Measured scan of single mutants.
Amino acid sequence: TIDEIIKALEQAVKDNKPIQVGNYTVTSADEAEKLAKKLKKEY
C-alpha cells in the first residue's frame, strides 16, 4: 500500500540509505518527500 511505501521511505531516510521504489531511486529526505507527495496524488 501507499502507507507502506511511505514508511519504507521514512525508514530509509533515517538510515540514510538510498532506496528503490518502483522506477524511482530515492537518496535523500527531500526526494523521499517529493516522491511521497507524488504517490499520494496518484493513488
Score class of each variant (00 low, 15 high):
Q20E: 10
Q20D: 06
E10R: 06
A12V: 11
V26H: 01
K17G: 04
I5Y: 04
E4G: 05
Q20G: 04
A36P: 00
D30S: 10
K37R: 13
A32S: 02
L9D: 02
T25W: 15
K7S: 08
I5V: 09
T27Y: 10
N23S: 11
L35M: 05
L9I: 08
E4I: 08
I19C: 13
K14Y: 03
N16E: 05
T27E: 13
K37L: 09
L9K: 00
Y43V: 12
K41D: 15
E4Q: 11
A12D: 00
K17A: 05
I5C: 07
E10W: 11
T1S: 11
L39A: 01
L39M: 03
V26E: 08
S28Q: 02
N23V: 05
V13S: 09
D3L: 15
V21C: 15
N23T: 04
T1P: 09
K14L: 09
T27R: 03
E42Y: 10
A29G: 08
K14D: 05
K41M: 11
T25L: 15
K7E: 10
P18R: 05
E33M: 12
D15R: 04
I2C: 14
D15E: 13
L39H: 00
L39R: 00
K40E: 10
E10K: 05
P18S: 11
K17F: 15
E31N: 00
E33N: 08
Y43D: 08
N23M: 07
A29N: 03
A8E: 05
Q20A: 10
K17T: 11
G22S: 02
E42G: 05
T27D: 14
Q11T: 06
V13L: 07
A32C: 07
N23P: 15
N16T: 04
L39Q: 01
Q20H: 10
V26L: 03
T1N: 10
E31P: 00
N16H: 06
I6R: 02
V21Q: 02
L39S: 01
A8L: 13
D3G: 09
V26T: 07
K34G: 07
A8N: 04
N23K: 07
L9P: 00
I2A: 04
N16S: 05
A29Y: 05
I19K: 03
K38D: 09
G22Q: 03
K37A: 14
I6H: 01
A12M: 14
E42D: 13
I2R: 04
E42W: 13
A29H: 03
A12G: 06
Y43R: 12
E31C: 09
Y24N: 12
Y43W: 12
I2V: 09
S28V: 02
E42S: 05
K38L: 12
I6P: 00
A12N: 03
A8M: 14
T1K: 10
L9E: 03
N23Y: 02
E4M: 11
Y43M: 14
I5W: 10
I6D: 01
G22N: 07
K17C: 06
E4F: 11
A36K: 05
L9T: 00
E4D: 13
S28D: 13
Q20W: 09
E33H: 08
T1V: 06
A29E: 05
E33A: 12
K34P: 00
T25C: 15
I6S: 01
K37F: 00
Y43L: 14
Y43S: 11
S28G: 14
I5L: 11
K37Y: 00
Y43C: 15
T25K: 04
I2G: 02
A12W: 15
Q11I: 05
E10V: 07
Y24V: 15
V13T: 06
D15K: 04
I19H: 02
V13C: 09
I5G: 00
L35P: 00
A8G: 04
L9H: 00
I2L: 11
K40Q: 09
D3M: 12
E42K: 10
Q11G: 05
K37W: 00
A12P: 01
I5D: 00
P18G: 13
L9A: 03
A29C: 11
D3Y: 11
E10A: 07
E4S: 09
K7H: 11
Q11S: 08
I2N: 03
E10F: 08
S28W: 03
E33T: 06
S28T: 14
T27A: 13
K37D: 14
K17P: 01
A32P: 00
I6V: 06
G22A: 04
Y24M: 15
A12K: 02
I5R: 02
A8R: 11
K37I: 13
T25G: 11
A8Y: 07
I6G: 00
L39V: 02
T27K: 06
